[in-house]
């Protein structure tokens, strides 16, 4: 008999094609009733399409940890799925963002931002909050609030511990990852975290304060939070 996917000659009763590996006569899992086979050849991707969010080394999709720096790549740079056959060829692969980015209504200029007038010592008038996956985290009413992942071993206790919300070395959240500060307006800075902080689609320059507005998304490692000033 012949393999239905690649037409290679295979022995009667074979469960898998010896050439292309396709399952013979088995139910197709995953719901999609597409025949086993090969997606249409797209333009060959140069280097697999993704780079490590930590050190920029290119990696092949599916890689769990960066070969160069060891950063966790699970969830990072997940490429667009290919269109299953038969579909008109698509101009894939799409250019990849390190993390899924929310749509921005208007582009923001890169650093440096104009610094608002500082009001030293003053506390925010209303308590701010962060939303993550439908849960609300109250931001303590202080002039400076650190965000990260509590770690007893290294005696690291940020004001906001994201561990209950999924922060771990695997999700790329550092122990002291970022800091919110009130200077008459809310500012955010990345505390030289391993995997960086992204606001308005821009990766923050470490240790440099940037204004953050209500409703904007903060990405730390692979976690996505939304900031609300009140």
């Amino acid at each position: 008999m012949n393999c239905p996917a690649c037409q290679a000659q295979i022995p009667d009763g074979a469960t898998f094609c010896d050439q292309c590996g396709a399952s013979i006569g088995g139910a197709v899992p995953g719901g999609a009733p597409a025949p086993p086979g090969f997606p249409p050849p797209g333009p060959a991707p140069a280097a697999g399409g993704s780079t490590c969010p930590s050190c920029g080394t290119p990696f092949v999709p599916g890689t769990a940890f960066c070969d160069n720096c060891g950063a966790s790549l699970t969830g990072a740079g997940a490429p667009q799925p290919a269109q299953p056959f038969p579909q008109p060829p698509q101009p894939f692969p799409q250019p990849q963002q390190p993390f899924p980015q929310p749509q921005q209504p208007f582009p923001q200029p890169p650093q440096p931002f104009p610094q608002p007038q500082p009001m030293p010592g003053a506390l925010p008038p209303t308590p701010a909050r962060l939303m993550i996956g439908g849960q609300t985290i109250a931001v303590p009413q202080k002039a400076e609030v650190t965000i990260g992942r509590a770690d007893v071993a290294s005696n690291s206790f940020p004001d906001i511990d994201l561990t209950p919300y999924g922060a771990s070395p695997q999700t790329g959240v550092s122990r002291m990852h970022a800091k919110l500060s009130w200077q008459g307006a809310w500012m955010i800075e990345d505390l030289n975290s391993t995997n960086g902080t992204t606001v308005r689609g821009q990766k923050l320059v470490p240790r440099q304060k940037t204004p953050i507005n209500t409703g904007e998304t903060i990405i730390m490692g692979t976690l996505q939070l939304t900031f609300y000033a009140s």
């Binding site: 996917a5 469960t15 898998f16 292309c20 590996g21 396709a22 399952s23 088995g26 197709v28 899992p29 995953g30 999609a32 597409a34 025949p35 086993p36 086979g37 090969f38 997606p39 092949v60 599916g62 290919a82 299953p84 056959f85």
Partner: peptide, 13 residues
């Protein structure tokens, strides 16, 4: 293992 592109289905890689 570096897997090649394939459509939906079950494969012995």
């Amino acid at each position: 293992l570096l897997l090649p592109p394939r459509n939906d289905g079950r494969y012995r890689v």
